[in-house]
Nucleic acid binder design. Structure first.
Length: 272
DNA sequence: ATAGCGCCCTGGTGGC
DNA sequence: TGCCACCAGGGCGCTA
């Protein structure tokens, strides 16, 4: 499940395609196209060159030479891969971009949740909160945004309008490092808890970016390489395993329909 | 306005 | 062994 560090890793691995041009676009499944027909997408992309690639939250933004932007969201199992045309698999490839250097850029996605945007930007893009690794994200972001709110802190962290780019893995890992229970109401967090949480978010994301992301089941960069952060995870997908800090068994609970992993000893519901 | 929830998908898993 | 129910989950869009 690609989150900020995985999309950042993908972005960096796509550096070789900057300056390349799209000779042809082959759409095998239009399901992934947001608010546009295959014809519109194909004609709009064909002949355009890649000017720049950046990232906003979990969105990858591919800027074309005519100022249009193709946005990609991988959701759960989406991949953007680069290679020789014969390297593309037979199954789950939805769009093939034939480049002017003979290489192929392709979008594949087994669960078909991922989307390509070009005609309209994703609605959530304009609503995104601050980039957590930027100077726009400060302890004040947490202080002001959590004030008088009853929402569980885990739900708050997953809300992309609050912070851009956190998903289930890094929200759980950040809460563990900060010693905060996922169900704790945000308005009740102490100054110390908020400070620890702010620090934890930055540290976890920084370390994950340096490790080229987490490959739990699906993530690969544009060359198919997995991430290395999985072995560093403290709680995510470690249910019933001993906490690395206190040896208590890691537990799970549901928060806003999502599974949360936490240590009941290191992350007391009553706060600390 | 805002919070909460169902839905989309398919491969992998666990139970019988 | 085979089958099947269930689970994973980000964001969108609808409802209360």
């Amino acid at each position: 499940m690609p989150e900020l560090p995985e999309v950042e890793t993908l972005k960096r691995s796509l550096t070789p395609v900057i300056g390349r041009c799209f000779q042809q676009v082959e759409i095998l499944s239009e399901h992934c196209l947001y608010h546009m027909t295959p014809e519109f997408f194909r004609e709009r992309i064909r002949g355009r060159c890649i000017h720049r690639i950046d990232r906003r939250g979990k969105y990858l933004r591919i800027h074309l030479d005519d100022a249009a932007v193709m946005t990609v969201h991988l959701r759960m199992t989406g991949r953007l891969r680069l290679g020789a045309p014969e390297e593309a698999p037979d199954k789950h490839v939805h769009v093939k971009f034939w480049l002017d250097d003979g290489n192929l850029l392709w979008f594949q996605d087994t669960r078909k949740f991922g989307r390509l945007y070009l005609k309209d930007d994703p609605p959530g893009l304009a609503l995104l909160g601050p980039e957590p690794m930027s100077d726009d994200f400060t302890p004040r972001t947490l202080e002001l945004g959590m004030k008088n709110k009853k929402q569980p802190v885990k739900s708050w962290l997953l809300d992309q309008r609050r912070i851009a780019g956190l998903g289930n893995i890094y929200a759980d890992e950040s809460l563990f490092r900060a010693g905060v229970h996922p169900l704790r109401p945000v308005g009740l967090l102490t100054d110390g808890e908020r400070q620890r949480l702010w620090t934890a978010i930055r540290q976890v994301l920084q370390e994950a970016i340096e490790a080229c992301g987490t490959t739990f089941s699906d993530f690969q960069d544009s060359y198919g390489r997995p991430g290395n952060f999985g072995q560093t995870l403290d709680v995510y997908q470690r249910k019933h395993q001993p906490c690395r800090r206190c040896q208590a068994a890691v537990e799970t609970c549901k928060v806003g329909g999502r599974t949360s992993h936490y240590c009941p000893n290191c992350q007391p519901l009553g706060g600390s």
